[in-house]
Write a protein that binds this DNA or RNA. Structure first.
Lengths: 136, 136
DNA sequence: TTTACTGCAAAGCATTTGCAGGGCG
DNA sequence: CGCCCTGCAAATGCTTTGCAGTAAA
């Protein structure tokens, strides 16, 4: 979108591009550090915020409150277990048409969408009805 | 799903049912208090957690990290502005078929799904490119 | 120099947890 | 009588913010 980017933003985009999955701000902070692109945690958050508003990256907020960041690219949707929190990617996406429609009808400028299914994974379905089941 | 419910859980379900929109745990805590169903905040969270695992309520976590709870019922999807955070409901939902399919192929027991579009609302598109725009 | 970016450390907030008291079966 | 539910308060963990130093134009 915009070309005006800080060095930090560029470095973050590079790391995100090399990764093939979404990553949390905290982990991104660590990974940048490993790659000699050391920067403060606050800077990481500020850069991510800017990139988000540009529409350059997409964010998925987990039920835990932690957010995962990734480049805007393919659709990656998820099937998430409410108990163990594990989530797996889904390939299908029946939403493109709707997105195009919304762009017009609501005059929104849509960057991306998220689609997530919640339930219990096979492993958690049988186990601890009350609690327990820290297994997966 | 399960019948075994505590008084707190019942009261929460009642409040949620009367409401026609999702509510945060904090606000739910206040609302319960107003209706003489006073209970501790921790109890509210614990009850919500239990109801969530039962599949009786659904949760949507906002980019802010705050979670909104509502009864599992109709599909309610959203169009959310990345800048001002305001979100509006969407009526269409092209996802039912896919959900049925996933139930089988992944052996998940799916309770519900969320579909959310992110971008900039009409109001925020023009404004503060860099920042500003606390308007909406 | 002038402005924007950065780091560090101090908050801020929603949520979770430990523990002891209390209610219900 | 025993166990689960609660409340309170402390603690967690992610994220945000204030402020002063620094780099870039």
């Amino acid at each position: 979108m915009k070309a005006r980017r800080t060095r930090s933003q560029e470095q973050i985009l590079t790391v995100l591009a090399d990764l093939n999955q979404a990553i949390s701000a905290q982990n991104l902070y660590v990974k940048l550090r490993e790659q000699q692109h050391t920067m403060g945690l606050a800077t990481v958050y500020r850069a991510l915020e800017a990139l988000k508003l540009e529409g350059s990256i997409q964010v998925r907020t987990l039920p835990s409150g932690e957010s995962l960041y990734s480049p805007v690219q393919q659709d990656r949707h998820h099937l998430t277990c409410l108990q163990c929190g594990k989530s797996m990617a889904i390939e299908q996406c029946p939403v493109h048409d709707l997105e195009a429609h919304l762009n017009q009808s609501h005059q929104f400028k849509i960057f991306y969408h998220t689609l997530e299914f919640f339930g219990l994974c096979p492993r958690c379905q049988g186990e601890g009805e009350g609690e327990g089941a820290v297994s997966c």
